[in-house]
């Protein structure tokens, strides 16, 4: 993968925008990690989270349905297994459980989709 470095976020080329279905997700392999990237066409936004659903430890969030909830229209993804939903912004579980998933910043340059990996050092 190509990589470019800014101060504390490393931007990694994940895939091409046209590879990710509209209003849907895809899974990106980054080193040993699996990252779910969501093309939220309806909102004109992109999001990324861990692909692992913490409920039953399944690598499936990229296959989940996305949508929004509440007055504020908080964007969310629903795990296909048991419909636990997670905020695409904060990673907080919205269906009442104490789970938290990792979220990543996403930026677009032309058709290229970059995911921001925060350096751990």
């Amino acid at each position: 993968m190509e990589a470019e470095t800014t101060t504390d976020i490393k931007w990694v080329l994940a895939c091409y925008a046209s590879d990710v279905p509209e209003n849907g997700g895809a899974c990106v392999k980054y080193e040993e990690e699996q990252i779910a990237v969501f093309n939220f066409t309806r909102r004109g936004e992109w999001f990324a989270t861990q692909n692992l659903c913490p409920h039953k430890q399944q690598m499936v969030l990229s296959r989940g349905m996305i949508g929004s909830t509440g007055e504020e229209c908080e964007p969310k993804v629903a795990c296909p297994f048991h419909k636990k939903t997670f905020s695409l912004i904060s990673g907080e579980c919205l269906s009442g459980d104490e789970y938290q998933i990792k979220t990543y910043p996403v930026k677009l340059e032309g058709d290229k989709v970059y995911i921001g990996i925060r350096s751990t050092t």
Binding site: P21, N23, G24, R42, R43, G64, M65, G67, S68, T85
Partner: peptide
């Protein structure tokens, strides 16, 4: 709003029941 995991499949099923379009075309 932007829909959710309840109304999306419900509408998908309605569209299929009415028009019987290819299901994979409405993927997400």
């Amino acid at each position: 709003g932007d829909g959710c995991e309840v109304c999306k499949p419900a509408v998908a099923a309605i569209l299929s029941s009415l028009w019987n379009d290819l299901i994979v075309k409405q993927q997400p």
